[in-house]
């Protein structure tokens, strides 16, 4: 290997480690999930508008969306949407705590990881049971 740099060629730029070389701890995965659940809820906003729009202007088509909601796929979608809301709520609250500069130490984020992982299913099922919906 020559110690002398070849000045005619541009020096190779430093390369950052490949994506797989990074360690992805649980709190990083949960934080990414905050974005994923946010996108699901964004889509849900437009579904809600469509639902109210049909109720207001298309009585004959309203039975269609009600029928869709009653199918197993429709119930599952409603359940996953509710779960996305609870997830986004729990991780969002933690991000707000982090925004203040507090809770950045390992004991807090390790404990709150479990609050999220256990709290989200409880929140989701509780919302369904309290609202009298099909679980």
């Amino acid at each position: 290997m020559s110690e002398k740099q070849d000045q005619s060629q541009p020096r190779p730029r430093p390369v950052s480690p490949h994506f797989q070389a990074y360690h992805l701890p649980l709190q990083a995965l949960l934080s990414f999930g905050h974005r994923v659940s946010g996108v699901v809820l964004s889509a849900g906003m437009f579904v809600i508008v469509g639902y109210v729009w049909l109720a207001a202007f298309a009585p004959e088509n309203f039975a269609l969306i009600k029928g869709l909601l009653a199918t197993p796929a429709g119930r599952l979608a409603l359940f996953l949407w509710t779960g996305s809301f609870c997830y986004h709520l729990f991780t969002g609250l933690r991000h707000m705590i982090w925004d203040t500069g507090a809770g950045l130490e390992p004991p807090f984020y390790r404990a709150s990881n479990w609050v999220i992982l256990l709290g989200v299913p409880v929140c989701t099922v509780a919302l369904f049971v309290l609202s009298g919906g099909p679980p």
Binding site: I48, P59, F62, K66, W81, T82, L127, G133, P134
Partner: peptide, 20 residues
């Protein structure tokens, strides 16, 4: 959001007259 999600689950079982 908590109120809205609970309401949507409740409304999903209703027909148009109930929703209105």
């Amino acid at each position: 959001g908590l109120w809205l999600v609970a309401s949507v689950i409740h409304l999903a079982a209703l027909d148009r007259a109930g929703v209105l």
